[in-house]
Structure formats: structure tokens, C-alpha cells
């Protein structure tokens, strides 16, 4: 198991490194732009107009965590990563069938459970996603240092990475609540498994499978979206209490994961072909 996971992970590692570097490069530029424009528009222009340092701080506040993620450019690489991950969910399977070589033959002929292939691919995707999320967290510390290098220290407020997360959309990938964090990635895993269902169905039944899989995903997505709309869009307050919503979410997750898993296992063991 660990060997195959290692093998799969090594195959995607270059992509992971590439994405990490790309994210850092673009976000660094974004942070530098935000910081320099703050320095220019808030500090220097007001100093020219005769305000004192104290007055500037009193009027505009300090340079805080919020400014780091202010520029939209900051979230561009996050979006790109999401797209690449979505692509790699499909890529990690189809590359073993496509081209002059058909590695899927070898994978399926390994003297171990077929599900090992499935787990290896699923875990590879999840590890890649988590790596990107946490490397983003690591980068926030670097951006704080960069901002401190550019701005005079009198203007610097709290540049705590926790604040950068809780005051921006970054909380989607790094939820400050531990339970929410774990739920987010468990739901993410379920999403990846459902995409795998689609792929395995297509591999097993070709176009018909794609149709069945698409219908399955459509029904599930409609149910979930319908529920959310019912809870939040037409009502001022959701019908269910949060504690009840947690139970509903856990049950829904369990049922869907079980169905998806059993289906995927059936497809892996009995249906997919080379």
C-alpha cells in the first residue's frame, strides 16, 4: 500500500513543487504591491501633506493582516491550484490508460488488492491538496516578514497569520475551527471519491457510464444545493439549528461516502478493464 502510494506521489511531486513555487511567486508580487501601495498612498502622501506619523496612524490605523490578502492577485494562484487539482483528479487515472503505454495493465496485475490502486490515487490527491493548503499557511509567515522589511516598524500592527486567514477567503482552505477544518477535508475527500466514481463508470461502461455517473452527481448536487437554498436563501434564518445541521451533515456524509465507496469498490474489483 505504502509503496504504491509512494510511487503515485512521486509521479505527481513535480507538479506539487511547481504549484508551490508558482503560488509563492505570484502571491509575493501581490503582497509587495499591496505593501508598497500602502506605503505610497497612506504614509508618504500624507507625510508630504504635513501630517505627523502619529496622526497618520490615528486616521488610517496600522498596517494589519487584512492588507496582506487585500489584492485580488493574491487569490489567483489559489484558484489556479484548485483548477489544477480538479484536473489532476482525472489526470491521475486517465494517464494510465492513454498514450503508447498502458500502465494500467501493470497496476491491475500487481499481486495485491485492486483497491490499493484506488487508495493510492485518492491519498495522493488528498496529500497534494493538504500540502498546498499548509504551504499556503507557511507562506503567510514569510509575507509578514516581507511586509516588515518594506514598511517602517511604527506602521506595522498585528501581522499574525491567523488573522490573515480569519479576515480573508483563506478560511475556506484553512478553517480556523478544527472541526470545520476536518469536515472541509472530509467533504473534499468525498468529492474526489465521487469524481472517481464518474471516471470508473466511464472506464467500465464508456459513454453509458458517463451518463449514469453524471446523473448520479447531478441528483446528489441538486439535493445538497436544494437543501442549502431551502435553509438559507428563502428564509431569514435556517430552519435547523447548528447542532442539528452538524448531525444532518455527518449523516449525509456517512451515507454518501458509504454508497460511493461500495460502488467504487465494485467497479474497481469487477468492472474496470484495460
Amino acid at each position: 500500500m505504502f509503496r504504491l502510494l509512494n510511487f503515485e506521489f512521486n509521479r505527481i511531486f513535480k507538479l506539487l513543487v511547481g504549484l508551490s513555487i508558482g503560488v509563492f511567486g505570484i502571491q509575493l508580487i501581490s503582497v509587495i504591491i499591496s505593501t508598497i501601495s500602502y506605503k505610497e498612498s497612506v504614509i508618504e502622501s500624507n507625510l508630504r501633506e504635513g501630517m505627523t506619523l502619529q496622526e497618520i496612524v490615528e486616521t488610517y490605523g496600522l498596517f494589519e493582516a487584512y492588507y496582506i490578502t487585500l489584492n485580488n492577485l493574491f487569490f489567483l494562484p489559489v484558484g489556479i491550484c484548485a483548477g489544477v487539482i480538479l484536473f489532476s483528479i482525472f489526470f491521475i487515472w486517465y494517464r494510465d490508460w492513454a498514450g503508447k503505454n498502458t500502465f494500467m495493465y501493470r497496476l491491475m496485475m500487481l499481486p495485491q488488492s485492486r483497491m490499493t490502486i484506488y487508495y493510492a490515487k485518492l491519498l495522493t490527491i488528498m496529500i497534494t491538496v493538504l500540502s498546498l493548503a499548509f504551504i499556503q499557511y507557511l507562506y503567510l509567515y514569510i509575507y509578514a516578514i516581507v511586509a516588515k522589511l518594506i514598511l517602517p516598524s511604527q506602521y506595522i500592527g498585528s501581522l499574525n497569520p491567523s488573522d490573515m486567514i480569519s479576515q480573508s477567503s483563506l478560511q475556506v482552505i484553512l478553517a480556523p475551527d478544527t472541526l470545520l477544518f476536518i469536515s472541509a477535508y472530509l467533504i473534499g475527500t468525498l468529492f474526489v471519491m465521487m469524481m472517481f466514481t464518474l471516471i470508473l463508470l466511464e472506464r467500465s461502461y464508456k459513454f453509458v457510464g458517463l451518463l449514469i455517473g453524471g446523473l448520479y452527481l447531478f441528483v446528489i448536487a441538486s439535493l445538497i444545493i436544494g437543501f442549502i437554498v431551502h435553509q438559507y436563501i428563502f428564509n431569514p434564518y435556517p430552519y435547523f439549528y447548528k447542532t442539528e445541521l452538524v448531525i444532518i451533515a455527518i449523516l449525509a456524509w456517512l451515507i454518501l461516502t458509504l454508497i460511493t465507496f461500495i460502488w467504487n469498490r465494485h467497479l474497481m474489483k469487477r468492472k474496470i478493464t484495460v
Binding site: 509512494n6 512521486n10 511531486f13 491567523s162
Partner: peptide, 28 residues
């Protein structure tokens, strides 16, 4: 030697997860 990439990544994830969990509520 051949497991270093995966080992490094998993270690990184665990270390950063612990740091993140410990640090996230610090301001409060």
C-alpha cells in the same frame, strides 16, 4: 532514500497542522 519526498511532505503536513492548530486562536 526513495521515500524521502512522501516522508518529507507528510512530516511537513503534520508539523504545520499542529502549528496551525496551536496558533490559530492565539489572538483570542
Amino acid at each position: 532514500k526513495k521515500y524521502w519526498k512522501l516522508t518529507l511532505t507528510l512530516t511537513g503536513i503534520i508539523v504545520l497542522f499542529i502549528t496551525f492548530t496551536l496558533q490559530k486562536d492565539r489572538p483570542i
